[in-house]
């Protein structure tokens, strides 16, 4: 039987011999900690192929506000439906996990909570504050939903002073209706712009999935739109279909094309660009902070 993926869509799985369960020891340690603290990760929710690699390095992207999303994006495998009430103790548990995992850079994201009056902004605020209180040196990156464009919500998140605010455009405008129904390209772009207007010293970041049927010219246009609003960090990766009920992959982009996009983005003077088949918004997010933020603060 031949694999249905091109040769570059292959990850390595290393099985540590000392572990009876057959999984890498570090992977299980991370998994056990998350389960003990009853925390969710986008790594698991999105069936991320990098999970093994990241968990082995004791890193994970925390997903707050429960694991049920009120939006119905066609690329994403996070569960959809009616979410549970907000868990007020979740921020403290995230803070404990960051400490236990000894993270230098943490990424905190969430499901979209269109059902909440503040769209979940106060939970982001509390989580950043709690994490900071017992991990004073950690770099905090929040990957936020669009908060339905609420300036108040964005303001509240920024008050907690995360170092990096990410919001993913995900795809080109012509595919929004198909890929992100319920979202708007313009609104997402405005949100990133607003972050810079309100707090110009916070780094902004966005991510794109390629392979959904977008044209090269459209990708270049998105890059230009992002630079125009002073977005600092851009990541691009291959869209991978989580299940047969999600959007199909239209094209597997070869690594060489990802490299080309990276060069173009660097020419446009993004501060940091990551581009490759397995690149995800939060994949090796600490590479940015170790190169830029540490340098600035020390």
């Amino acid at each position: 039987m031949v694999s249905r993926f091109p040769p570059w869509i292959v990850k390595r799985l290393s099985l540590a011999p000392s572990d009876k369960k057959g999984g890498g020891e570090e992977v299980n340690k991370t998994r056990n900690l998350l389960s003990r603290l009853d925390l969710h990760t986008v790594c698991e929710g999105a069936r991320c192929p990098n999970l093994w690699e990241c968990f082995a390095e004791s890193t994970a992207t925390f997903m707050i506000l429960g694991k049920i999303c009120t939006r119905n994006c066609k690329f994403c495998s996070v569960a959809k439906g009616s979410p549970l009430p907000v868990d007020q103790k979740e921020p403290k548990r995230i803070a404990q996990a960051v400490k236990k995992l000894d993270l230098k850079h943490v990424v905190i994201t969430s499901v979209t909570r269109d059902d909440l009056p503040d769209r979940g902004a106060s939970q982001f605020f509390s989580t950043v504050m709690e994490v900071r209180s017992i991990n004073p040196d950690v770099i905090i990156e929040v990957l936020i939903p669009d908060f339905a464009g609420s300036r108040e919500a964005i303001n509240q998140v920024l008050e907690a002073r995360p170092e990096i605010v990410g919001h993913n455009l995900e795809t080109v405008p012509s595919l929004y209706r198909k890929v992100r129904p319920g979202a708007s390209y313009e609104r997402s772009l405005k949100l990133l712009k607003l972050v810079k207007i309100l707090q110009s010293d916070i780094y902004t970041k966005s991510s794109l999935m390629l392979g959904l049927g977008e044209e090269k010219q459209e990708i270049l246009q998105v890059m230009e739109d992002l630079r125009r609003i002073d977005c600092d960090i851009l990541t691009m990766g291959q869209y991978l279909q989580p299940s047969s009920s999600h959007l199909e992959v239209r094209r597997f982009i070869p690594p060489s094309e990802f490299e080309e996009y990276k060069k173009v983005a660097e020419k446009m003077e993004f501060l940091f660009v990551a581009s490759g088949p397995f690149v995800r918004s939060s994949y090796r997010a600490n590479e940015f902070s170790s190169r830029f933020i540490r340098k600035v603060t020390h």
């Binding site: 869509i9 099985l15 991978l240 279909q241």
Partner: peptide
Amino acid sequence: TEKASFQVE
């Protein structure tokens, strides 16, 4: 898996 191939060492 649905999302990718994995080489098991």
